[in-house]
Write a protein that binds this DNA or RNA. Structure first.
Lengths: 205, 205
DNA sequence: TAGATTGTTAATCGATTAACAATC
DNA sequence: TAGATTGTTAATCGATTAACAATC
């Protein structure tokens, strides 16, 4: 017998809970409640309790949740207690911004290698990284056992890069290229495309 | 009597349909079907037809959808036939990448003004833009009637920037800062936070 | 104890899918 | 015409919410 799978939509909210908890912790708070968390996130208290109940019992009646404890539990559930090495493909403006982004620190991810296919860029530096040839994605990522990658290349190159990453054994891809890519079962892809978000909001203008 | 509101989740898929149609058009294709679109997007054909049916009848039995016509209709529905001026707040690495991003062209948005609160940056250039003082957000955005903004500032400054944007009359905000911000009813906010996406995928590693 | 808040159940709500008549 | 595909209805599925006993 297999334990019931957790709905993906529930998994998708856990990082938001963790983020809100981090802010509360940074304010020196010790304890919170499903009501407070919900208010901060625009989510109902019942939903937060229900979501958490998929994974165990983390609160105390009458009191609420210990912020540090719940954070630890969420990090464990999300597998972000240790930092995952992340391969970045694409050393353009966006790659530059990502390499210098300080928001990954302590959140479970650390960019540790950078690739580009432009001969003008290969061998040069991006931040503290030497830019490696995209041709070497498969060998290097496989050798280092990297499972997470960020794709920040032009749309016409994205599928090809994704294919190489998949062959290298990458299991989670954050794709900034504005195309839907094909990946085999068992490989996760998430998309970031500002145009999609802007168009969605434009409907309500 | 009020016509039934369109579910937000439906509105959220329209930009994906439009993006897929743009790619098909770029390949020189004239006609597509709900089945083909669904396959490309990982969405069921029935759902696509259902989504579109909220807005009218755009296809032809036995044939499918004229790509150019459906694209036009979706652009009209999403209000992206004309380009909206976009205010960018934050002239850091991310702001730099956004100003140089070529993916906005022809999609309904054009960054047209850039703000930062750093005296070292105010008055300097970012791409073709002079960086303006964040203090002037309210007057300049209100004067120019800008309704869309992108927030690319550190988390501790984000709520304050959002408040100024709201006072200036902005109705749609794309927030890259990793915090949930408070806005009044009638103001749309969308979030982009790579950490949230990465953590969500990490669960499946 | 009294008040507060959890974890869980059952009810409600809404979204997705299957199926098919209409028709190009 | 025969085959294909739409738009729509009804059924199914899944997610959210309300309510409350348990209990800190």
């Amino acid at each position: 017998m297999v334990s019931k799978a957790i709905p993906d939509i529930v998994v998708g909210r856990l990082p938001l809970y963790l983020r809100a908890l981090s802010f509360l912790a940074a304010e020196g708070r010790q304890v919170t409640s499903s009501q407070e968390l919900g208010q901060k996130l625009g989510i109902s208290a019942a939903q937060i309790r229900k979501d958490l109940s998929h994974f165990g019992e983390f609160g105390k009646q009458g009191t609420g949740y210990d912020i540090k404890y719940l954070s630890e539990q969420l990090r464990r559930i999300l597998k972000v207690t240790e930092e995952h090495e992340v391969a970045l493909v694409g050393a353009g403006d966006l790659g530059h911004a990502l390499v210098h982004y300080d928001g990954f620190a302590g959140k479970g991810f650390r960019i540790s290698v950078v690739f580009d296919n432009n001969p003008q860029k290969i061998g040069r530096r991006l931040g503290t990284f030497e830019i490696l040839d995209s041709e070497s994605i498969e060998t290097i990522i496989a050798d280092r056992g990297i499972e997470v990658a960020i794709v920040a290349v032009p749309p016409n190159a994205a599928q090809e890069v994704v294919d190489a990453l998949v062959r290298a054994g990458v299991k989670a891809i954050l794709n900034y290229a504005p195309i839907t890519v094909k990946v085999p079962e068992g490989v996760q892809v998430q998309y970031i495309d500002p145009v999609i978000h802007l168009q969605r909001m434009a409907y309500y203008l």
